[in-house]
Amino acid sequence: METQLVLEKWAGVISALTIGANKEDGGSRANIVRIGGQGSLPLLFKEGSIPNRPVIAFEIWDTPPQDWPDDLTSAYGKVLNDPFAWADKCVNELKAQLLCVRMQGAHPDFGNKDPGEAANFISALLTRVKVPLIIIGSGDDSKDNLILPACSEAAKNERCLIGCAVQDNYKTLVASVLADGHHIIAESPIDINIAKQLNILISDMGLSLERIVINPTIGALGYGLEYAYSIMERARLAALSGDKTLASPFICFVGQETWRTKEAKAGYEQGVIWEIITATSLIQSGADLLVMRHPAAVEKVAGYIDSLFNK
């Protein structure tokens, strides 16, 4: 007798979201990136539609990174000293579909750029490269409340993804994102209850749930990957069962988490392997956007995504 597969029927769907605006949409991007829209758990193609693939964003900084291990810096070489050359390399040579720019240079300890400088940087970057942008703050809340609104305004109508809003600090960013037509990243500390609460707080301010991407906070392999995995899985199950407050795509900062581990820093290309395993595991649990660092890891993971989706 033939085995019958038991297929789940889902009531809910993950919201679909477009990053980047081309000329028709009032922006200047050459390409746009669509994520989300799934009507099934990750990769269960028979249970519902999966209209978009997971997408990899290259992470770049607005200032030369100081604490990146050699394995990582050697992959980029001298361009790390010039953010625009770095961006060029990612787009032209490494074929990045989108870039995630971290405004590290605005951090009080790493350059303390003022809002005007940050805005100028974003304007110049938008002229230099034509892929959509994800813009991330420096990690210093009070400073980010100054520079992110400036960056948001500089990128007005380009439909960027900007973050990260957190439960104690989201209002300034939500207001900017609303005014300038972007999407927002809502970050919670591996905590599904806070992820949900933050989504509600943000939508209460008038930014619709369809414009939120959840950063569930992940840990790299060996550093809490399985916690992130189960949180993401639980959120997806709730969303597919009809909970709209959790039906947001996920962004995972794979590179950032991988390259802080001692295993990655140990050399011997271990970091690349670590980044690949972390990324591919998170794809299994529903990651929509993977922010990655090492070109070799990106290449492998992109190939993996192709093999999953080219059936």
């Binding site: 209850n193 949900k196 509600i200 707080l201 209460d204 959120a235 909970d243 407050t245």
Partner: peptide, 11 residues
């Protein structure tokens, strides 16, 4: 049946 959050009633 639903996931807790502080604003669950509103949600």
């Amino acid at each position: 049946k639903n996931i807790y959050c502080d604003s669950y009633l509103e949600a």
